[in-house]
Simulated assay, not measured.
Amino acid sequence: MKIPRYLVIALAATGLVVMASQFWGQSEEPSSVVRPVKSVRNPATAAAVTRQADERQEIVDLFPVPEVLQPVAAPEPQSPAVAEKIDPPFAFQVVGAWWKDGQRIVIISDGAHSRLLCQQCQAAGVVRPGEALALEWRLDSIADDHLMVEWLPQNLLKRIELGDLKSKPAR
């Protein structure tokens, strides 16, 4: 089998670089020299020599991991604390309301999307009590002067005042 010329040149160049690095590379001398232990016939002396040899020997890490790659020690697990009840921000604001066939329909908006809320109307796309307003919010009830919404992660109820939208406007 014939090896292409570019592979022969690459192998020769690699061999030359390896040989050159052996002669002109950085010389690292071992930090500690291990000396063979002399054989001793006295058992007490042999134990003392063995202890001295053990004290002198260091554990050498043959494959050290750079500090950047070493995992960060996990913090000690703390005792489980009681979850604090937080007041989550309700992104929706009451924008308006209108009456149709004696039913009040409340409009809420988060700036990008508007939702229609009503108690018992038959209109399509309307949120009724018990249905989801957003991913983590559910409409609990509609009263004359307020809305009750529930934050699902902690089952926390929040009251939203309706302000001037309590009564039907006069004609």
Rank of each mutant, 00 (worst) to 15 (best):
V106D: 03
D110Q: 04
F92I: 02
A81V: 15
S114K: 05
K85M: 14
A123G: 00
K85E: 11
V127I: 15
H113Y: 11
D110H: 02
A91T: 09
A97W: 09
Q119F: 00
D110M: 03
I86S: 01
V126M: 01
V126D: 01
Q120V: 01
P129Y: 04
H113V: 14
R104W: 00
G111T: 01
K85C: 00
S114N: 12
P129E: 03
L116T: 08
E84M: 12
E84D: 04
V94L: 12
S114A: 15
A124Q: 10
A132Y: 08
P88E: 10
C121Q: 00
I105R: 09
R115T: 05
P89Y: 10
R104E: 01
H113K: 14
E131T: 08
G102L: 07
G130Y: 02
L133A: 04
L117V: 05
P80G: 04
K100E: 13
I86D: 04
Q122H: 12
C121I: 02
C118E: 05
P88V: 01
D101A: 14
G130T: 06
A83F: 08
D110T: 09
I107R: 10
A124C: 06
D87F: 10
Q122V: 08
Q119P: 00
P80R: 02
S114V: 07
R115I: 14
V127M: 11
P89L: 14
D101P: 03
L116K: 13
L133E: 04
R128W: 00
K100M: 06
E84G: 08
D87T: 15
S109H: 02
Q120W: 02
I105F: 10
A123D: 11
R128K: 15
L117H: 06
A132R: 13
V127F: 06
Q103D: 07
K100V: 10
S109E: 04
V95Q: 14
L133T: 03
C121N: 01
G125R: 06
Q119H: 10
L133P: 01
Q122T: 12
W98T: 15
P89T: 03
